[in-house]
Amino acid sequence: MKTNGGYLSLIDCLKTDMLRPLRLVDEAIADDAQEIRLYAGRPVMILCRDRAYFPDSGGKTGRIPPEDCLTLSGRELQSVFSMLCDYSVFSFQNEIKEGYITLKSGHRAGICGTAVTENGGIRTIREISSINLRIAKQVYGCADGLIGLLRSDFDSLILAGPPGCGKTTILRDAVRQLCSGALGRYVRTGVVDERCEIASCANAEPGFDMGISCDILSGYPKHIGIEHAVRSLSSEIVVCDEICSAEEVSAIEQGMNSGAKFIVTAHAGSLRELKIRPVVRRLIGTGVFKRIVLLKSRATPGETAAIYSVDDVGGII
């Protein structure tokens, strides 16, 4: 399968000499990398499917931290954080409150530090202690199975899997195929991209190939985006990543009444987790979804573990 973006495009976003050794990392590791983890005062870690690597100051990597391993001080990590915010923290203040920043090219930086609270909520995060850079990839053809399912029965489905198993990547490719005529027509698809991860729009243009007939609602809270997609954009199918609140489930329920179909993702590593997660139970309870596609683990990203009919799972639940 042809891939696009990935490690190098993330490295291009890191315009700082402190992380220059990451450019020199072995190509095989770069291709396989899923995350780069930066810790204050601890070695930088490159996380691949099932193992971690520690680069040294020359870009050579080891399975255990080498003597001159690449390490950032707290102050250096803070300046990496400023750089990731394009020296404009205010631009990302809502995302920072949620604990992440979406970079150009769709990569996501998870942020950890000391929370500054206000009225019971998080106002901002100071003293950044670690940053987890998740690499976004476009893998052409990884959603072929999903498209096959939609070809046989054009109906709503849930894509479930553990973190890092490739849910967003499959979703992205599914949208591309739907909007490029894979079903024999250009399906009007509304992508509610709250965290700007799916399409990664910059200057109103998607950072990934998203096909033609795709409306991208970037940065919209999911429940509002779903409403706009259904009411204003007459989307045939609405795509959302990581459904996690009751408000979002209600919006999906309302969207279904307007005749739209949905493809959504949810965190759940197994059938057991599907059963115990209240949001998934509510999603299934809406009657909107017919099938659940469960993906395998982080070690085999994009691979399907099982496809359940909601009737079966509903019965079990």
Partner: peptide, 10 residues
């Protein structure tokens, strides 16, 4: 100074 804080402060 600009860009180091939230919108209100900036």
């Amino acid at each position: 100074t600009i860009g180091r804080s939230d919108a209100e402060s900036d």
